[in-house]
């Protein structure tokens, strides 16, 4: 048991100490700096005033934020057990790589003579685009498929947003996200090793993909915050701003099913779900109709299964009161 606890402690620590993690202290510091600067300039606040706003106890000590913390810890425990049971990107890549030997369209090693930089840049860019698109796609499906929405409500039930909200995911969602990651990484790795051989590499900064490092370094953690950092309109048509993601969390029906993207806004524009940021005051959460969902941490984990069961059995009349929400 002490070994398991040690494992959990190491895992939790890594969330804040590894540059590969969203909650890395360096990225949090960047987000804090950008957030404070934005409040000072845009809201004409003093630094003290800006810090008071950023660290408002009404947000950080809210019931929703405390639920975030509880879910974060519970999920770390759950996934310490679940993760080893799930397929890895290496298994996917190995399977696909071997399968690629049985086709002629993409000959093995066809591009192995190209320059290292071309191979590494191609790989890094391709993975970034495919990864971002697949995140968009899965997110889109989580909203559009009723059964998946039952589980995605877990994330949208947050009524205050802090960087920790990014980890507020139902375990079923978590499994889906891990499988997505394994699939996308496996496909990309297999394809590029097939074509470029040992020339393939990932362009990194501090061991992290250069694109992801830039994304996080430029304040990705503000997406889950109350700092409505907006980009110029033209830029928001390319990159999703924190304010646009906050709009995605809005409980206003006019904002439902908008801005599914993570880094790039082009996917939303292609599928008609793009929405620029607004100056409107936005409140977050599922709304009064779903009040029962966040009755307790337990209900957040359990009720999606109840709702799913009732959907599958067609007995929706017995769904928990006020649990349904039209999207």
């Amino acid at each position: 048991m002490p070994e398991f606890l040690d494992l959990i402690f190491t895992d939790v620590s890594a969330q804040f100490l590894s540059p590969g993690k969203r909650l890395f202290v360096g990225y949090l510091a960047c987000a804090l700096f950008i957030g404070v600067l934005f409040v000072c300039v845009a809201k004409r606040q003093s630094v003290t005033g800006a810090l008071a706003m950023v660290f408002s106890p009404a947000i950080w000590l809210s019931r929703s934020s405390l639920f975030d913390l509880a879910c974060f810890l519970i999920n770390r425990l759950l996934f310490a057990v679940l993760r080893p049971l799930l397929i890895t990107q290496i298994a996917v890549a190995t399977f696909i790589y071997q399968a690629l030997h049985m086709q002629a369209l993409l000959p093995i090693g066809a591009l192995q003579h190209v320059d290292y930089w071309l191979a590494a840049t191609s790989f890094t860019l391709f993975y970034f685009l495919l990864d971002d698109f697949s995140r968009f796609g899965v997110h889109y499906l989580m909203h559009r498929i009723p059964a998946l929405w039952e589980f995605h409500k877990f994330h949208h039930s947050a009524e205050t947003l802090t960087p920790l909200t990014v980890t507020r995911a139902h375990p079923v969602e978590g499994v889906i996200f891990i499988l997505r990651t394994a699939s996308i990484q496996g496909i990309t790795i297999a394809l590029f090793v097939c074509l470029f051989g040992d020339k393939v590499d990932l362009l990194t900064i501090y061991g992290v993909s250069i694109f992801i490092f830039i994304f996080h370094g430029l304040g990705s953690n503000l997406r889950h915050s109350h700092i409505a950092l907006r980009y110029p309109a033209a830029l928001e048509r390319i990159f999703i701003s924190p304010a646009q993601h906050q709009l995605h969390h809005s409980r206003n029906p006019r904002h439902f099913d908008r801005n599914f993207g993570v880094v790039l806004a082009i996917w939303d524009r292609l599928l008609g779900s793009f929405h620029p940021s607004t100056h409107e005051e936005i409140s977050f959460g599922l709304g009064p109709a779903d009040a029962g969902y966040t009755k307790s941490v337990w209900s957040m984990y359990w009720l999606p299964f109840v709702a799913l069961f009732r959907r599958l059995t067609g007995n929706r009349s017995r769904a928990p009161k006020n649990f349904e929400r039209l999207r």
Binding site: K21, T88, I90, A93, T94, F123, R135, A169, F177, T204
Partner: peptide, 21 residues
């Protein structure tokens, strides 16, 4: 011959596997 795959997988990591955007 599968070391390239393992190396790249390690570099990509599964860092944000359960993060929800």
């Amino acid at each position: 011959r599968l070391a390239d795959i393992a190396n790249l997988a390690e570099k990509l990591g599964s860092a944000e596997g359960v993060e929800n955007d």
